[in-house]
Amino acid sequence: MFKRLMMVALLVIAPLSAATAADQTNPYKLMDEAAQKTFDRLKNEQPQIRANPDYLRTIVDQELLPYVQVKYAGALVLGQYYKSATPAQREAYFAAFREYLKQAYGQALAMYHGQTYQIAPEQPLGDKTIVPIRVTIIDPNGRPPVRLDFQWRKNSQTGNWQAYDMIAEGVSMITTKQNEWGTLLRTKGIDGLTAQLKSISQQKITLEEKK
């Protein structure tokens, strides 16, 4: 169930391209415009997507990853294993993690069937560096609404905000991946996880038929 919630949630996290980005210092504006741009692209490019579902990787690479804190999220997933990894191991892992996100997020976007969304009203940021933004996803086919909290983090150097995690039903996506990959990290280390991520990233994206 959580895996499905995570995939549905990713439908609204794909941010804007650099040329049309919203105010990078306001995570609420980023979330709002990102959702609108993403849904528009999914709707307008269905012919290309249906002809070649792996085209979704391109959308992810162009529109999402430049505005997601990939390395920060990847380091959180590694936890204690990050500090013990060599620079070469980290570089290989982050490259594999990025390719994994292209496949995983692309597969999530393949679930698009006309969903709509509501974003919580903007709250004062103050001096906060981590801000959760509640998004409610509404399914046109009558499924119950899904309420999610996207975690946005302020870059201490640039002042810009980027998304790095999502919490559904009190469970963090980062925590879920830590639990899912924990045994592999304990037995085969970061190299074993890197190899698995490379394998997963090679899987073809498949479209979910409308139910």
Rank of each mutant, 00 (worst) to 15 (best):
Y81G: 03
S199T: 03
A104Q: 00
M111Y: 00
Y100W: 05
R57Y: 15
I133P: 07
D165P: 05
E45M: 03
Q203F: 11
M166G: 06
V68F: 02
P144H: 09
Y72Q: 08
A163L: 11
Y55T: 11
D32M: 01
A88D: 00
T194K: 11
T58L: 14
L125H: 09
R147Y: 00
I174V: 01
Q202T: 04
P66Q: 05
K102F: 02
L65W: 03
A88V: 05
R186T: 13
V171P: 12
P47T: 04
Q118N: 12
Q202G: 10
V171M: 13
A108L: 07
G106L: 04
K198R: 08
R4K: 05
D165Y: 10
M31C: 07
K198L: 09
V171C: 09
Y67M: 14
D191T: 04
R41H: 11
D191P: 06
F39N: 11
T86N: 14
I167H: 13
Q203T: 12
Q69F: 15
T187N: 12
A19T: 03
L56M: 00
W152N: 04
G126I: 15
A108V: 14
P66T: 06
T176A: 13
E33L: 09
P140H: 11
P27D: 07
M173Q: 10
M111C: 08
R50H: 01
T58G: 06
Q203D: 08
A19E: 04
K29E: 03
Q196A: 15
G114K: 00
H113E: 09
P15T: 13
H113C: 14
S201T: 11
P145K: 06
L207P: 09
V12S: 11
L64A: 11
A85K: 05
L30H: 06
Q62M: 01
A120W: 15
G106E: 00
I167G: 07
I130S: 12
Y55L: 05
I49T: 04
K71N: 05
Q107F: 07
M7R: 03
V131S: 06
Y164S: 08
L56C: 11
L101Q: 00
V77G: 08
Q123M: 05
V135K: 00
D127L: 00
P66Y: 02
D61S: 04
K29R: 03
K37G: 07
A34V: 10
I200P: 08
L185Y: 15
A19Y: 01
W152P: 12
N141W: 13
K102P: 13
D191F: 11
W181N: 04
K204Q: 08
M6W: 10
E99R: 01
F2N: 05
I200K: 12
A9F: 08
P145Y: 12
Q115N: 01
A73S: 08
P27R: 00
T20Q: 13
G159P: 06
Q103E: 06
V12Q: 10
K83V: 01
Y93R: 06
A22C: 02
G189Y: 09
F2G: 05
E91M: 09
A92F: 14
A9N: 00
A163Q: 14
I13T: 08
Q115S: 13
P124E: 03
L148E: 14
Y55A: 08
L78Q: 13
A19Q: 00
Q203P: 04
Y28W: 08
Y55E: 15
A95K: 13
I205A: 14
T58Q: 14
A34Y: 05
I49V: 01
M6N: 04
L193S: 10
R186S: 10
L42H: 11
Q157I: 14
T20I: 10
S17P: 12
E122L: 02
L5W: 01
A21E: 08
E180L: 08
K37R: 05
D127S: 01
I174W: 12
Y100N: 10
A195P: 07
G170R: 05
I137R: 05
Q89A: 04
R147C: 05
V171A: 11
Q203H: 10
G106C: 06
A73C: 07
K83L: 05
A163V: 08
T183C: 11
M31T: 09
K188S: 12
E91Y: 15
F97L: 03
D23F: 02
E209I: 04
L56W: 00
N44K: 00
R50D: 00
A85V: 12
L185G: 13
R98L: 06
F2L: 02
L185D: 14
G192V: 12
I49N: 05
R57I: 15
T158H: 12
V131M: 12
S84I: 04
I59Y: 00
E180H: 07
Q203R: 09
L125A: 10
M7N: 00
Q89V: 04
P87A: 12
E169A: 06
V171H: 07
E99I: 10
N26P: 09
V77N: 05
K188Y: 05
R50L: 10
Q24C: 05
E63I: 05
Q123N: 15
M166R: 08
Q46N: 06
I137G: 08
L5R: 05
A163I: 15
Q46Y: 01
L193F: 12
E208L: 09
A108T: 10
A51G: 09
R147K: 02
E169N: 01
N179T: 07
L56T: 03
G189W: 14
Y81N: 01
I174C: 06
F94P: 03
V8Q: 06
K204S: 12
R4E: 01
T176Y: 13
G142P: 08
R147W: 08
N141H: 01
T38P: 04
L30N: 14
L42M: 15
E63S: 08
A110Y: 04
W152Q: 08
L76E: 15
V8P: 02
M6V: 10
R134L: 09
L125Y: 14
D191Q: 06
D139M: 10
E122P: 11
F150Q: 01
N26L: 05
L42K: 01
M166H: 05
Y93E: 06
F94A: 09
E180C: 06
A73F: 15
R153V: 05
A92Y: 07
A19I: 00
L193A: 11
S201Q: 01
Y81I: 04
K154A: 14
S172Y: 02
R41P: 07
M31E: 05
T187Y: 12
T176M: 07
P144E: 12
Q80K: 15
I133T: 13
L184R: 10
G126Q: 15
L76W: 10
E91H: 12
A104I: 01
F97H: 03
Q62N: 14
I137W: 15
I133V: 14
F94Y: 08
S17W: 01
Y81Q: 00
L76D: 14
A96I: 01
Y81M: 01
P140F: 04
D40H: 10
L197R: 06
M1F: 14
N26F: 01
P47N: 12
V12A: 06
E209C: 15
K3C: 00
T158P: 05
D165F: 08
I130F: 03
Y117V: 09
Y112K: 15
L207Y: 01
A9H: 00
V77F: 11
